[in-house]
Amino acid sequence: MLLLGDIDIDGVRELLHGHGLCLEVVGEDCPIPGSYWGEPEAGLIGATVFARNDTPVHSLLHEACHLIVMPAERRDGVHTNATDSIAEEDATCYLQIVLADSLPDVGAVRLMADMDAWGYTFRLGATRAWFENDAAEALAWLNERGLA
């Protein structure tokens, strides 16, 4: 599992900043604010994604993408749980794979393998199979909102 501490954190900060988000890295022994799944999974409060060096990259990108896909009027009030619908969840999963390719030390293929290892579930049994063959609705959802 690729962890935040394994990659260029400044690159992640730049990526998130480009989408109007902040990354706050908390100390090794500190709780992660807004973590839905519990530590070491990423958390979110408002437009800030919280993580530690032991946070999986797929978790950080997933939570960030929840914030990116949600309407701006919901973003300020979000705390811990960001899911609004299955369509929004699917769009989040799709976008996190796309954004992984913009991080040189991550990439979509690695991220999808980590998503499978963590336990993401898709109808076709694997993240890559879903992304390549069954994600047209998620992509359309993102396109309708100018996010793809």
Rank of each mutant, 00 (worst) to 15 (best):
A72Y: 06
D134V: 03
R13A: 03
S85V: 09
E63K: 02
D114P: 08
D84L: 15
N81D: 14
I45G: 02
P71T: 06
Q96G: 00
D8Q: 10
D8P: 05
D54R: 11
P33W: 00
R13S: 04
T48A: 01
V106F: 06
W141T: 01
G34W: 00
V49C: 01
E73G: 05
D54S: 14
N133E: 15
E24Q: 13
D116Y: 08
L16R: 02
L21S: 01
G5A: 12
P104L: 11
L16S: 06
S85R: 10
D76C: 12
G77Q: 09
V78Q: 09
I32L: 03
R145T: 07
A64T: 01
C65G: 04
L23W: 01
G11F: 02
E41M: 13
L60C: 14
G119C: 08
A148T: 12
I97N: 10
Y120G: 05
L3N: 09
L139D: 12
E89Y: 12
E132S: 11
E89V: 02
L23R: 00
L147R: 07
E144A: 15
M112F: 03
N53L: 15
A51R: 00
A138E: 08
P40G: 06
E39D: 15
L147C: 12
L124I: 07
V109D: 15
